[in-house]
Amino acid sequence: MYNDKNKQKIVDIIKNAARKHSLWVLAYGTGCGAIEVPATMTSRYDAERLGVRGAATPRQADVLLITGYLTVKTLKRVIRVYEQMQDPKYVIGFGSCTINGGMYFDSYNTINQLDLYLPVDVYISGCMPRPEAVLEGFGKLQELIGKGIANGAQQYKENLDFYRENQKKVIKNWDFQDYNW
């Protein structure tokens, strides 16, 4: 299903075309970047014209927007939320702090590198990224989906042990169920 472009079936091309124009973003402001999300959704930038729209619960959402730094306490919730989402699902890392810790590189409570714990499809750099940058990030994600290579969820399933190990290293009170869907 998530082959590269040469092997993409016609069905997948149609599916991906629909998916890329209908990205439902989970309403979860995990960090300070959440302040620019309303601006992205409203009149000047209006992400809805690209099919980007808010979704209330993880079951309905396609895109998990990690808006900024993740504290260990939030990371646990984010992983839970991510695992509740249904395939195909994408993660956008938003802001410098998801890439390398940003200005919180030496904080005892924030993780530095998001892609050790969750598969990230697109990173948006900046602190904080402007709405234009956010839109470009969505554009990049659409491009990847169109090519059929936004396969973070697949990667997560295949390398579950790797991710689990990293997650357990950070989250002390580990009580997750098996991830088998």
């Binding site: 599916k15 629909a18 998916r19 124009h21 209908s22 099919g51 249904q86």
Partner: peptide, 14 residues
């Protein structure tokens, strides 16, 4: 229509 088709193409494992 796009949204509906996308929802239809999503997996329903839960």
């Amino acid at each position: 229509f796009i949204d509906a088709f996308k929802l239809y193409s999503k997996s329903t494992a839960i």
